[in-house]
Amino acid sequence: MGEPSKITDLIRTEGKTRVYQMDDGSQETREGGTVSWRNNNPGNLKFEYAGSADKTVTSSRTPEAALAAAQARYGGVVALDQWGNAIFETQAAGRAAKAQLLTNTHGDRTIPEMLGRYAKDDYTGKANTDAYANSVYAEGDRQGVELRGKAIKNLSSKEFEALLDGMKKVEGFQEGVVTRTPAKTTDSPDMPTASSQIRSALSPEQQRVHQMAIERLSGSLGANYSPEQIDAIARSVAQLAATNANRGEGQGVFLSKDQQTIALKQTFGISEIGIQEALSPSTKASPLHPAMTGVPQQAMQPEAELRTALSR
């Protein structure tokens, strides 16, 4: 059996769905399951940033800084999801990152001592470290090893693997449904394809705006546009944010009443793009009204509420 395909880019993250670009040119959609499975992140390693979907976060760090920190610390980090959870290129890379954290940061601690610092209250609820430790011990018992009362650095290889397995179970590594779309080819190399557009990487800030646009536009445009078209529109909005980066971070996405124009509210102004322009492969994201500094409330619909927090 050959090496498993690696994730090279996050195309879309929405609710319990992830769409990835793979190193063999295909696209992989993961639906359902748990967030640790969807992200190849069995330890649910997380890098908080301002503006994420996790409203318990108080960090002022930008998405770009959070991703840079994750990639500097662990190998194989491809992106961060809307909650700040790291996305790894393979499950093996995610497990190796978890092992690195336990060894380098918590090696002198016992399992309960480690969990007191590792398991934190967040959007998933309040951490129960006692129950967490008991579940890990139970997995050790099942594998015939004793994990109680030992510093992590003193665990044997078999004991350490049992610890990783136990934590993986507690963190909720449950598989969902995977759909793979083969790499597309075209008889006209000069004609841009949807897959070549999707393959273009988005920065963390663009990913955040892309996700914001997907969530805002799916309900409003879903009856008239396919998910692929909505994704293309959202990517154009993300490009608009990058083109007008001097206006600050994206604050909200709004749709005009006639559903012909999208407005991106940024910290220091508003940029607009027409629906048809956003759908065009040759879109050059540019504002229609660069002088605008406020949201025309009579023309734009209220911003949608963020989705409820995912359960691990």
Rank of each mutant, 00 (worst) to 15 (best):
G125C: 09
T90Y: 06
G149H: 00
L155G: 01
D122F: 12
G125Y: 02
D108K: 08
R148M: 03
E89A: 04
S157Y: 12
G75Y: 03
G116I: 08
N134W: 07
A138Y: 05
D165L: 14
T90F: 14
Q71C: 02
V78C: 00
L102C: 15
K158V: 12
R95Q: 11
D81S: 05
G75W: 05
A151Q: 07
T110H: 07
D141W: 13
R73S: 09
I111M: 03
G75I: 07
D121A: 14
K150F: 02
F160L: 15
E139W: 01
D165R: 09
A86F: 04
V136F: 00
D108L: 08
E139I: 01
D165I: 07
D108G: 11
T105M: 07
N128K: 14
G94I: 07
L101Q: 07
G76K: 01
V78G: 00
S135W: 03
R117C: 10
A93N: 13
R109E: 06
F173W: 12
A99V: 11
D121L: 12
A99T: 15
F88H: 04
K126E: 08
L115P: 01
L164A: 14
T90A: 07
S156N: 05
R73M: 06
A99K: 15
K98L: 11
V170E: 06
L147V: 04
R73V: 00
I111S: 00
K120Y: 09
T129F: 05
N128Y: 15
Y132G: 05
Y137I: 02
L115W: 04
G172E: 14
K126C: 13
Q82R: 12
V77M: 00
Y137D: 01
Q100M: 13
D81L: 01
L163R: 01
I111T: 00
D81V: 10
E89D: 09
G140Y: 01
N134F: 11
D141S: 04
R117A: 10
G94D: 08
E113F: 03
M167T: 14
D108C: 14
A127Y: 08
L163H: 03
Y118W: 10
W83P: 02
Q71R: 14
E161S: 12
A86R: 02
F88G: 00
K168V: 04
K168E: 15
L80Y: 06
S135E: 11
R73T: 07
G172S: 09
A151M: 10
D141R: 09
K98H: 15
I87L: 10
N104H: 13
D108Y: 11
A79I: 00
L80I: 13
L163F: 00
G166Y: 00
K120W: 15
V77A: 00
D141A: 12
A127N: 12
A119G: 09
G116V: 09
H106K: 07
A119M: 11
E139F: 01
G94A: 12
D165H: 04
K153L: 12
T110W: 02
D130N: 13
D121M: 09
N128C: 14
R109I: 07
R142C: 03
H106N: 04
Y137T: 04
N134P: 01
G84S: 08
T103D: 15
N85R: 14
I87S: 01
A127H: 06
R95L: 11
L164Q: 11
